[in-house]
Simulated scan of single mutants.
Amino acid sequence: MASAGHQPPSAVSVAGGFVALDWGTTSLRAARLDAQGRVLDEHHSDDGILQVPFGGFPQVFAAAVDRWQLPPGTLCLASGMVGSRQGWIEAPYCPCPADFRAVAGRIAWVPDAPGGLRVGIVPGLCTEERDVPDVLRGEEVQVFGALDLLGLHEGVFVLPGTHSKWVRVSQGRIATFATFMSGEVYALLRRHSILGRTLPADEGPLDEPAFLRGVRHAREAGSLLHGAFSARTLALFARLPDAALPSYLSGLVIGEELRAQPLQQRSAKLVLVGAHALTRRYQLALTAYGAQASTLGDEATWRGLAALAHTLESP
């Protein structure tokens, strides 16, 4: 892994546009943006960091951006797991609370980047509660993008996924956050528990009534360890058709995540950021809990990286 520094190799300008990369564990998204942060072109590939051979990050990066024939010195900002210890270079975590400028000041710059480009890796964030650390990588960019898009300085931002993040923003800074392994727990129950014996092989379309039944039971059962077994007994007694069971189990797991949140006490704006298929489920579940949230999609990532680029450009 190459060593990196926090200071950019020279003054940063985005007058001619720049490139944004969302480089995660299993996928790579790249976008060419103009000086105002508008997307001119983008493409996706399966070249996540787990697919990159040892020492192969420069070649994968070059293949992703060569189509744009970028002049030397063009700014390229990458966020996500590319900055982890398994990535191109490690971008150490930035402690919370953190705003745009704090994160921009800890960007790790790739030495001798291909094509003479200025390649910066956005750091993740870390926080600590009761002497236990928590971390995120990539979601901080989505939150910053959501703040910029919505013109907010306060709020609670929910980023569903394999490891869902609940992020609290105060006075324009990410104050703290918490991780919930909801997507991973669902996959484990779905594939590697007794529940999988009765669930169909395919997910199928979302069954909203079954999903909401799972959300309600999660609240009533008081514990996923108890409530999860209902996915088996409802099948045994033919109370739910097999095709509805994945939606029911999804509702149980997401309902458990929401049960841990002080939703009734929250006065800050609630924002969901992520893929539509997931944010739709969370919207349904939040409604069942009497809460409302606005939603944003992929545009939050590009806007967040654009905001960081302009922060770098500012003195």
Rank of each mutant, 00 (worst) to 15 (best):
R137S: 06
L70H: 02
T162A: 13
E257R: 07
R259C: 07
G83Y: 01
L199M: 15
A30D: 01
P53M: 10
A113I: 06
D34S: 05
D298T: 13
G138T: 07
A64K: 00
V52S: 04
L249C: 03
L50F: 08
W88L: 04
R130A: 15
P92A: 11
G24C: 03
D99R: 12
T127N: 09
P95E: 13
G5S: 14
G5W: 02
G116M: 05
P8V: 08
T26I: 02
Q51D: 12
D134Y: 07
E220I: 13
A31W: 00
I89A: 11
E42A: 14
R191W: 04
A78S: 13
T287L: 05
P241G: 13
A30F: 01
P123Y: 11
L312H: 02
R232Y: 07
P95N: 13
T74R: 04
G105L: 03
C76I: 08
G204E: 06
S250L: 04
C126P: 00
L240C: 05
T26R: 08
D148N: 14
A221S: 14
G274V: 05
H163V: 10
A291Q: 09
L150I: 07
E139H: 08
A35K: 10
W109F: 09
F61R: 03
L50P: 00
L50T: 15
R118L: 10
A243I: 06
G83F: 00
G222Y: 10
Q7T: 14
P209E: 12
V12L: 11
E299S: 10
M181T: 09
G115C: 03
I107S: 03
Q171A: 15
A64S: 13
H276C: 12
E184K: 08
S267W: 01
D34K: 01
P111Q: 11
Q171R: 13
G73W: 02
R281F: 02
G183A: 11
V14G: 00
A243G: 04
A293D: 06
R216K: 12
Q51P: 00
V169F: 03
G214R: 04
V156K: 10
S27W: 01
V273W: 01
D242T: 12
V14I: 14
D22A: 09
A63V: 06
D47S: 14
D99K: 08
E299F: 02
I49M: 10
A260C: 13
Y186C: 04
R38P: 00
I254P: 00
R137Y: 06
G73T: 07
Y289S: 12
E140S: 09
A260N: 12
P72L: 09
